[in-house]
Design a protein around this nucleic acid. Structure first.
Ligand SMILES: [Zn+2]
Ligand SMILES: [Zn+2]
Ligand SMILES: [Zn+2]
Ligand SMILES: [Zn+2]
Ligand SMILES: [Zn+2]
Ligand SMILES: [Zn+2]
Length: 758
DNA sequence: GAGTTTGAAACT
DNA sequence: CAGTTTCAAACTC
């Protein structure tokens, strides 16, 4: 795959662009556009059912620099050379046959960094159906996604697992730079059928094909704020979409509108949905033009590749912004809400989000959307592109390479099961110049619909081989890459979210996602905050009883027994996730709405049901989350309300305790500073070598500081109701500590002086 | 650390 | 949907 500059794309003939069965997307008219649905079984679209066609390889490269030049190699595919920055060779490869997407990171830096970090690039299986993304995220660890084999490849058997679902699975992957990525199971993830990928194409000329069983229309309003917007584009984008191939579903049309601020709950999740494209033949890639702020270096360093990766991943490192805030501030796209869902519970619908495209426009800007879309077209002459050195395994692709043209704006929205949309992973937008040709646009990549089993982020938390295993069902999987914008808007540290869903057949819709920090903590906070280890013994950590599982995370450093919440038991885990989602589609959504600081929105989604704790103990989920009980709580004897005297008392006690700790810390700090200060002043005296050290060091200031420490200790003893003996012991102990500090300081001063004198 | 209490999750 | 059981965490001693 090569990187093609947007301009180049625009220049590309449509034939190239739309070669194959990809339906063209009708150039969407600004405003709403109806999407035509296509029959799932449309022959034109190669689905898993299709016989293995000569593999089509798609290589996508994104040139970051505006001046990028593109070269196309008929044999290997196209290679693009960015403006001298880097040459990417098959940065992104998609082979239909293999259904793999491999992203290699351009710069070696990232990989090395990752290694240094202790996380080697992860390679998933080399079955050939893998998606490897490297150089994503801060850690620079590559992420590999594996796509399940599609039926197209006879030779490859589908993985065990959900055999039932032949429907293509869809996964959404969001990769973020955060180190703490966690796989999330999420409701947020939507499943798409890979087949839909075809349909995903942005508008094609034929407006309506009624045949498609289900149509989705998505209208998205984009908020230009904060993002470099393309002013020219109309704010509203309409997308369309996809049909569900599955026979079961009756045809439907769904219209989705996305107001700026509308958030799906997904927002909290901060995940990005990726639309899976089943057929490799057509891929739409959007590159994110958004420059990364200086903070994210990687993006800078690796213009092209990184950019691609980021976009695809939509990961970016956001520096400090808490996800929540970001999300709110930026309203754009992130959340798409599927309005109507097919009747099937957990049904997966595919949704392609941004669709509007400008005809012929070189830049892919989509109205209202800040993304750049790149369309990938299979090249007739394509040959498999060589894979870069990346760890990635198989890039097997074959035959037709796809060219991605940035110009086309196509959106592919991953179809998401109605319930679960993906959340957009927040990606801070960095203003880095480097990347994209278009400054403001974002790119979106849609991956082939082949089923992805999972993706795992490579963070340390994750198990070593964060490889995604092929989805059990072997169904097709679609990948969607989230537009960078989404990411940027959110500014959160990048996350990776993968979701795989099986086709409507209940097989599975599972995903692994990275999770956003809860409570709006800064990324740093979240990253640093280790999750409390679980102690499960009977649930195998596959029930919501397990906090790790409930949070969509793998167990890591837990004390659980017989744990299945890990990569080694992915199949079981996915099944468990599905079970949970079947039981409660929102099982993995955060219970506390928006953890933002503004507590206005913070309330428990279901409310508690406490009977005996008065909601003033951590047994109560409301109290545990530090929020007040609300009208939706069904608690009895609740004392967790604003005016509650008990609550106030408790809070005061807690505050007092906190103050005490602070005072104690302050006293110690003061003592230390006094001592050091004293040292500074007395050094000359010491150097004189007199034997008056005690008097020299035990000054008035030191005495005062010491007394403060002792008083604090006394208070502490009193507060904890220690018996007098114990209180005395504590005080004496503290006095001992103070003396030790004084002595050590004196000794140090003396030795220093000695050394100086010498 | 063992044992108890608690309320969500799971199950019927 | 309600009642019961199961479960792991919170809490107590
Ligand atoms: Zn557990
Ligand atoms: Zn655990
Ligand atoms: Zn576990
Ligand atoms: Zn409560
Ligand atoms: Zn409550
Ligand atoms: Zn309450």
């Amino acid at each position: 795959m090569d990187v093609v500059s947007p301009e180049l794309n625009s220049l590309l003939p449509d034939e190239i662009m739309d070669t194959e069965d990809i339906e063209d997307v009708p150039h969407s008219q600004p405003g709403t556009t109806a999407v035509h649905s296509e029959p799932s079984d449309d022959a034109s679209v190669p689905m898993e059912t299709d016989t293995p066609v000569a593999s089509e390889n798609v290589t996508l490269s994104l040139a970051t620099s505006t001046t990028t030049t593109k070269t196309t190699d008929s044999v290997t595919g196209t290679s693009v050379t960015t403006s001298g920055l880097q040459k990417l060779t098959t940065p992104f490869t998609i082979s239909p046959a293999n259904r793999q997407i491999i992203l290699n990171k351009v710069a070696s830096q990232a990989s090395e960094a990752a290694k240094s970090a202790g996380n080697p690039p992860q390679v998933i299986k080399q079955d050939g159906q893998k998606l490897l993304v490297t150089a994503i995220g801060k850690s620079g660890q590559p992420i590999v996604l594996q796509l399940p084999h599609t039926g197209s490849k006879p030779g490859i058997s589908q993985t065990a697992g959900d055999t039932k679902s032949q429907a293509p699975q869809f996964k959404v992957v969001t990769i973020g730079g955060r180190s703490d990525l966690k796989p999330v199971v999420g409701n947020q993830v939507t499943t798409l059928q890979t087949q839909q990928l075809k349909t995903v194409q942005i508008a094609k000329k034929t407006p309506a094909s009624s045949a498609a069983p289900i149509k989705f229309i998505i209208t998205k309003t984009v908020n230009s704020k904060g993002i470099s917007a393309q002013t020219s584009m109309p704010p509203v984008i309409t997308g369309r979409v996809l049909t569900q191939s599955s026979p079961v579903m009756p045809p439907r049309t769904i219209t989705l509108s996305e107001p700026h601020n509308t958030n799906l709950q997904s927002i909290p999740g901060k995940k990005i949905a990726i639309s899976p494209l089943k057929t490799p033949s057509k891929v739409t890639v959007v590159s994110v033009a958004s420059p990364t702020s200086g903070a994210s270096q990687k993006s800078v360093a690796l213009p092209v590749n990184v950019a691609l990766g980021q976009q695809i991943l939509t990961v970016q490192q956001s520096t400090s912004v808490s996800p929540v805030k970001v999300a709110t501030s930026q309203s754009t796209t992130q959340n798409i809400k599927p309005v109507a869902v097919g009747g099937v519970g957990g049904s997966q619908f595919k949704t392609i989000i941004p669709l509007a495209t400008q005809p012929n426009v070189q830049q892919i800007q989509v109205p209202g959307s800040r993304f750049h879309y790149v369309r990938l077209v299979t090249a007739t002459t394509a040959s498999s592109t060589g894979q870069p050195s990346g760890p990635s395994t198989s890039s097997i692709q074959t035959a037709k390479p796809m060219v991605v043209s940035t110009a086309a704006v196509r959106m592919s929205v991953p179809v998401v099961p109605a319930q679960t949309m993906k959340q957009v992973a927040p990606k801070p937008l960095t203003s880095g110049p480097q990347v994209v040709t278009t400054t403001q646009t974002q790119q979106r990549l849609i991956m082939p619909a082949t089923p992805l089993p999972q993706i795992q982020p490579n963070f340390t938390n994750l198990p070593p081989g964060t490889v995604l295993t092929p989805a059990p069902g072997g169904g097709n999987v679609g990948y969607a890459v989230v537009p960078a914008q989404y990411v940027t808007q959110i500014q959160q540290p990048p996350f990776v979210t993968l979701a795989s869903s099986s086709s409507f057949s209940a097989s599975t819709g599972i995903q692994t996602q990275a999770r956003l920090p809860l409570n709006g903590l800064s990324a740093a906070e979240t990253t640093s905050r280790p999750r409390k280890p679980c102690n499960c013994t009977k649930s195998q950590c596959l029930k919501l009883y397990c906090d790790c599982f409930a949070n969509g995370e793998f167990c890591n450093n837990c004390n659980c027994n017989n744990c299945f919440n890990n990569l080694e038991h992915e199949t079981e885990r996915l099944k468990a996730i599905k079970t949970c989602l079947d039981r409660n589609p929102e099982a993995f959504k955060p219970k506390i709405g928006k953890g933002k600081e503004g507590e206005s929105d913070r309330r428990h989604s279901k409310g508690c049901n406490c009977k005996r704790s008065g909601c003033l103990k951590n047994y109560c989920e409301c109290y545990e989350a530090k929020i007040m009980c609300s009208s939706i709580c069904k608690c009895i004897g609740c004392k967790n309300f604003e005016e509650s005297p008990e609550r106030k008392t408790l809070m005061h006690l807690a505050d007092a305790a906190e103050v005490r700790v602070q005072q104690q810390t302050a006293a110690k700090t003061k003592l230390s500073s006094q001592i050091s200060d004293l040292l500074m002043r007395t050094t000359p005296v010491i150097s004189s070598g007199s034997g008056r050290l005690p008097y020299t060091f035990v000054t008035k200031e030191v005495l005062e500081a010491t007394c403060e420490c002792l008083l604090e200790q006394a208070k502490k003893a009193e507060q904890t109701h220690q018996p007098q003996v114990e209180a005395e012991r504590m005080i004496l102990e503290e006095f001992g500590h103070c003396l030790m500090r004084i002595i050590s300081s004196a000794g140090k001063a003396k030795s220093d002086c000695a050394s100086i004198n010498c």
